[in-house]
Design a protein around this nucleic acid. Structure first.
Lengths: 141, 141
DNA sequence: AACTACTTTATAATAGTTCTAAACTAAGTG
DNA sequence: CACTTAGTTTAGAACTATTATAAAGTAGTT
């Protein structure tokens, strides 16, 4: 990348350290995803639409999918699913939990939920992680 | 239904009590789903393939989708999602939890997991349910 | 038996995602 | 700095799960 200003260096390093070539597109997508204070939940289509809206030269759909998959494989994004057959991604890769409120997702910090009892893993298996979904509904009156 | 033998009566009643006309197709699908000892996890495509394999007169794809949706709306099936953009259904409609082991799903009885600490619902919301997913991996010593 | 509302069906349509192969580009080499 | 090459981007086709359409069929009532 010819233009490597300081603003981008952190994202370039992040990509490079994951074995991903820091192309123009990947750097811009990384900046969009990770240059924010709060956790970001998104689908690939949402990401594409919001980024391309502001751009004259659009990034292709395939690149959004490729990049999100690469970032996920590198451990920079977490995938999760709702009941609508669409993949959601979460920039918060630490182990944590979620409220699901009619398609809206809210993070719950890991330490907000603790267990009194948990089952053992079946023979030959071990527990990779434990994630809780708390489904919400409106509190009518 | 002209042929209403005792074997089918229970499924016919189940459909009728949910406001669903007990058509030939619905009764057969219900029997296939609910006439078993253990909980059954499936996708609509899996259900279609395994039922139609044995049949000379196939049930159409649309009917499988319609019936599964109707049974879900009536509260006889529960839907859940894995990370592959496909809807899974569970004949165990009681509140319970799951092991996910590389696409394989195993039920965990509700009382096998208890909480020590749980967050409050956000203002104006209340908790509808709490479900835990325990992801497994192989125990390579 | 006749009527009607609900159901099934084949098929088309849609949404999200992955594949393909050609054009492009980052990064190393001399 | 050209040159090379392996990795990347791209448009578009293909694919998979699912939903919509509208015509034909059927359950349940009269």
């Amino acid at each position: 990348m010819e233009k490597m200003n300081n603003k981008n260096k952190i994202f370039i390093d992040k990509l490079r350290s994951s074995g991903l070539r820091p192309t123009k597109q990947r750097v811009e997508i990384s900046k969009f995803l990770f240059n924010r204070k709060k956790t970001f939940h998104f689908t690939v289509e949402e990401l594409k639409n919001s980024m391309n809206l502001k751009r004259s030269k659009k990034i292709s759909t395939a690149t959004f999918y490729n990049t999100v998959h690469a970032l996920k494989s590198a451990g920079h994004l977490k995938e999760f699913s709702l009941e609508n057959n669409t993949s959601y991604y979460d920039t918060n890769i630490t182990s944590h939990h979620h409220f699901f409120d009619n398609g809206k997702v809210i993070d719950i910090k890991s330490d907000k939920i603790t267990f009194h009892k948990l089952p053992d893993a079946p023979k030959g298996k071990k527990i990779k992680n434990v994630e809780v979904v708390i489904r919400l509904e409106n509190n009518n009156q």
